[in-house]
Amino acid sequence: MESKNKEKSAERLAVSKIRCGTVIDHINAGKALLVLRILGIKPGSSERVLIAMNVPSKKMGKKDIVKVEGKYIGEEELNRIALISPNATINLIEDYRVSEKRRVELPSVVEGILTCPNRNCITNSREPIKSRFHIVKKGEEVRAVCHYCGRRICELDRYVV
């Protein structure tokens, strides 16, 4: 119990509470910036974002946390985070309270998020086409298969657009 409290206070130190918005917790350590990329939050975006990296975590050793103030992010968008952090949890915050809590779920198909490493794939040509990958879970490993050329990729974080 004591260590849990310690962990909690470390968390509090790392990122202050938000009034309303979305908190993405239990992100694999080091992947916070990639999470922002997946959510389409770029430099110049207007959202107020708090990031904590390498926060001590009992379950994960170290984890990252991303808090997006004033914005509720859609379920489909959030589930894409599972591609790089299958254990991430989503907390929707209303008036400083958690109004909803859930895990990200691995989508079965993603469009426009990953690029195909196959240079001869039609998705890497000048055609009007979005990349499309089928997501499969093999044991603990998450893999993606290109809908068009069939190329399989394993380390998905290397291919996020």
Partner: peptide, 10 residues
């Protein structure tokens, strides 16, 4: 017949 993979599906 096309030189790029996935061309037919597209």
């Amino acid at each position: 017949r096309h030189p790029l993979e996935g061309a037919a599906r597209f």
